[in-house]
Every structure is written in structure tokens, then in C-alpha cells.
Write a protein that binds this DNA or RNA. Sequence first.
DNA 1: GTTTAGCACTCTCGTGTCGAGAGTGCTAAA
DNA 2: TTTAGCACTCTCGACACGAGAGTGCTAAAC
Lengths: 346, 346
Amino acid sequence: MTTLTERQRLILALIIHTYVETAQPVGSKALIERYKLDTSSATIRNDMVELTEAGYLRQPYTSAGREPTEEGYRYFVRQLMGQTELPMNTRRTITHQFYQAGRDVNRWMRLAASVLAHQSQGASLVTSPRPESARFKHLSLISTHGRQVLMVMVWTGGQVRQQMLTLAEPVSQEQLSTAAGHINLVCEGLDTDGIAALRGQFDALEQDVIKLIREEQDRMKQVVSGEVYRDGLTNVLAEPEFAESESARKALRVLEERSMLEDLLSRTVLTSGMDDVQVLIGGEGTWEDLRDCSMVLGRYGAPGLVTGALGVLGPTRMAYGRTVSTVRFVSGLLSDLVIEMLAEEN
Amino acid sequence: MTTLTERQRLILALIIHTYVETAQPVGSKALIERYKLDTSSATIRNDMVELTEAGYLRQPYTSAGREPTEEGYRYFVRQLMGQTELPMNTRRTITHQFYQAGRDVNRWMRLAASVLAHQSQGASLVTSPRPESARFKHLSLISTHGRQVLMVMVWTGGQVRQQMLTLAEPVSQEQLSTAAGHINLVCEGLDTDGIAALRGQFDALEQDVIKLIREEQDRMKQVVSGEVYRDGLTNVLAEPEFAESESARKALRVLEERSMLEDLLSRTVLTSGMDDVQVLIGGEGTWEDLRDCSMVLGRYGAPGLVTGALGVLGPTRMAYGRTVSTVRFVSGLLSDLVIEMLAEEN
DNA sequence: GTTTAGCACTCTCGTGTCGAGAGTGCTAAA
DNA sequence: TTTAGCACTCTCGACACGAGAGTGCTAAAC
């Protein structure tokens, strides 16, 4: 593969830029007009031929304009796009919104999904922060009725889970409080293995409670264990490539079905570093349902403690620069918030 | 408006039944063939003319078959459809799934959305149960770091909410536990007004906590306060009437945007009785974005205590019988679960 | 060697025409 | 009141055709 000249790289970038806006094949004359180039259309055409031979452009039919291939987008993302950042005032506004949401993780997630969808004009998804090593923090036992007890468990990272427990025989609120106090004292800061090592230190009541705590702890380790927040699904329906709804349907199903999502995320972001933003173009040959789509995926959280995934789905013809910087910014912001919250708790 | 003969009512029902399956205008001969009628096509045609004049049928163009109008669907739903129930084994399966989900309200909601979408082949939504009179149940105060305190509040109905509180000066865990104990003792079972009436019984620390409790209580009174669970959005994209995605986009936006949803729900189900299932056909002239859609909406919960809404969105050409019975069944099931949980707690 | 002007060629897309087919409305008879 | 028969209407797909946009190629200019 011959290396591209500087002008060819420029032309590729301009074609992608134009095509992202218009969704129409780009011709040589249109390019000159649009960007006031001082080369002639014939020259551009010669370069276009080479870019086509290199596999970065394609003609939908003979004697039409060119449009980028998936390879073309990949080259663009890797080599031409450069690092951009969201405008300062946008970043300030978003940051402000997050800090206004207080400590409510649910609201963070909703807000993150909303911001991603809005900024990128695509469909967004955010998974709840998942503890990588769920450490126990606090337990409350609340007597409700007869032998029914409501357990409220708090974990490092801010997760709060509840569970009902039915005892063999009625127990007073004082006994429950004592048991909870004992468990809190002994188990604070421990992970599953740590709690498992303490067997035998507990009485019958406490054993029952501990069993449920460990079950809950295991459940929290699943990849997409908690809620999945989505937003902007209707954005992608506005794109012309999804005008016939069959392709839109296929793409949105990936976001909708937990099993597909789990597969996708566990094979991409969840095995990558925290600050990498991954760009999947055209399904990368692996995901048939994402043929006409691209995804920009990121990861957030505190490495080794709690992490979650987030991302944007859009047409292959996507404004990658803006989307990547949005995903990077939001993931950084969520990481900061989560780490801050974690720090406060210890 | 002349009243319809029995045969005309039958023909209307059969046309709707056929049209729901085929999405094609129904002709007189096709009807005879399909249902082995022993009247001639000319007779059917005469009746069709009357049904058309009555406003229940429409011809998309001269000399095509007939398709139901919105009025036709309304007549069908009100007068012809009758009460159907889901098959026994389907009901058993669903019930079983719910009881397997334990006491996890989140999972109930997800499951309800999934069942609704699956059974009706439409898009479903379920709102979290909203306390109509949020009564306080229990509070835990957990010291985290320095002046930071994690509040975990439990409400009748099973809602658990968390909130961070920053104190003026550091306070020990013992003091926090004492304060929590005092508040629990005094406030248990009270609603907003009840707690407001207790002003002056608290010290400074407790005042701060009470303030946050009341704020949280107010927040829970909003119509669509909690999470909204959706499923099957891609189902409606499979329907031919949503082939051009513009109409699909409009319809799904109603489900996606909280403000629209809030408007819709607060004007329909949330003002109706618990066992009513409401059928909105073609937006009922009020919701422009729902022009080609119908919604089947229901309400669940314990009247006066906690209630939520649920529903299905589909094309106007929808299997109303099946959808209505699904919504009714799931809403009944959720009501039972919520009421059962409430009973256990008191 | 690289760039440019000129020109013939190709392909899409919108429009118009046409015939087949499905289904109707109407009339007259049963 | 129902039915048979028949002329009529309208959609839909196929086909043709011209306009327009854009290309590839060649030869001249830089």
C-alpha cells in the first residue's frame, strides 16, 4: 500500500467532513466549491482514484461521487482526526449539571446518558458502576412484620441494596440492631473472601444475614449487573441511513438486549484501560447487527474498585471527533465523581 | 347515526381481525374466503358501504378494500371485543417469574416491562411505584469521612433512598446512631405534614437530617419521580406502518422524553381507577405525535399508598384484545406484589 | 513529472406511459 | 333483502426516456 501524499490526506479528511454532513456522495467539483481549493477538479479526481484504490473511498456506482469506506473512517480516526476537546463553556455547563445532581448515582447515570445523547446526536448507554471488588460497608436490619426483616446493605462505592429476610422465629428490633452492630464491626471493609474467612464467629441469626450479604455481593460482580441507562434512541432514527427501519431495528436491538450488550461490552471496553476511548466502526466485522453503525465506547470509575461502561451508537457516518471527545469528557467526569465519592467514604 | 345490524358488527370485527394481521386493506371477497362466510360478496359490500358511512371504515382510495378508522377501532374496543384473559399456562409462567425475582422492586419493574413487550409485541413502559402518601419508616446515619454522613432512608412501600449530608463539624458514629434512633422513634409512620408538625423537638444535627428527609419526601411525590423502565422499543420498528422512521421517531420520543411521558400519564391513568385499562387510539386527537399509534395504559399499586403506571405502545392496528388482557394481568400482578410487600412491613 | 482543460461516456433519478389486477358501485333479477 | 353480473376506477410494477451530475481519459500547459 503506497503512502498517501499530504494533499490526499487532506482530501480524504474533507470528503469525510462533507459526507458526515450531507450523507451524499461527494464529487470533485463540490469539494472545490465548498472549501475554496485552488487545485483543479481533475487533480482532485486523480487523487480520488488513488484513495479509492487504497480502499479508503468507494463509488456507490460508476460516475458518482465518492463516499468513505469503513477503512477510510478508520484511517481518519487513527491518523487524521487528532485530539479535540469540547468547548470550554460546554464542559463547564455539563460539569455544573453533574455537581448539581448531588450524590445521587441514579441521577448521574441518567444525566450522563442524556449528555452523551445530546452532544453526539446519537443513542447513548451508560451502565451502573460495578464494584470490581465489592467491599462491605454497613448493614441495617429493620424489623417489619413478624418474622420479616428488611436488610439494607451499603457497599464501598455507594451501592445500596435491599433484601428481605424471613427468620425462623420472631426477633426483636433490639436483637436485630445488636446483630447488625456486630456484623458491621467485624465485616467492615471486607470483600467476599474476607467475609467467607470469618465463618464460625456468628450466631444462627447472623449466619442467615451473612449468607444473604455474600449472595448479594456475588450478584454485584456480574458484568451488566445493575441498570442500564439509555437515551437518545430516537436520535438515530432521524439519520437517513436508518430510514428503512430494518437496519435501525438491528442496531437498537444491540442496545436493548442485555445479553448482546454484555457480550459487546465485555469484549471491548471492559478489558481496556480507563482512559482509552474505543471506536468500533461498522461492527468491525464481528457484529453483524452493527453493520451500518459505529460505536464509541469508554470506561469510567476507579480502577480495581468500581467501574462502568458508557458509549454512543450512531451511523458509520458519524462526527467522530465530537463524539470521541464527548465520551472521553463524560467518562473522565464520572470517574472523578466516583473516585471523589469513594474517597469520602474511607 | 343508525345502529348497526348484527351482521355489520360481525363484518367490522372480522375486518379488524384481518387487518391487524395483514396490514392490507380488506376486500369483500377476501373476507368470504378467509372466514368461509355463506353470504355473497355483494351483500358484504353493501354492509361495508354502511359501515363506511357510519365512519368505522375507510377506503384508502376508490375501489380498494376497506381498513378500519380510529372510530372503528374505538367501537370495536368498546362494544365488540369483550373481556378476554391470557391463557392459563401463560399466566402461570409469568406469575412464577415474578415470584422468583424475590423482593427486588427493580427486577419486578424490568420483568414487567419485558413481559408486556413480549406478550403484546409492542413497546412497553413501567414507572416505579410512587408513594401517594410517603410515610417515613427508618433512617440509618453512617459516618463516612470527616463531616460527611451517608443517610439511608426507608419508606413504607419499600423505597430506599440515599443522600449525602455534610455537617458543620465532625460527629462520632455513636452520636449519629443516637440521633437516628431518636428520629426513628418520633417520626416512624409519619408523612410530610406529620413530620413538619414536629418542629422544635430536634437538636441542630437532627434538624439538618429532617430537612433532607422532607426534601426527599417531596421529591418522591413527583409523578414520574423514579426510574422509567422500557422494553421492546425495537418491536414497533418491525411494524410496516413505522417503516419510514419519521413516524416511529415521533412515537418513540413520547416514551423516551420524561416530560412528554409525565404529561401523558398524568392526564390519563393516574387520574383513573386501579383496575381500569385505558385504550388511547390514534392519540385521541390530543397527542399529535401519537397519530398512528395506540397506547394501552394501566395503573398498579395500592390505592392511596403507592401507585405506578404501565402501558404498551403499538400501531393503531394492534391486537387490542391480547394487549388489554396482558396489561390488565400484569397490573393486577404488580398490585398484588406491592400490596403483599406493604402488608409485610406493617 | 505534475497539473489542468476539454470531452465523451456512464449511471442515477424523476417523470410519464401502459397494462394487469384487484375491488368497487350499481343495476336488475331472484 | 340478497345475489349475480358488469363496467369502472385506482394502484402498482415495468419500461422508457431525458436531464444532470460526475467521472475517466487524453493531450496540452506549466
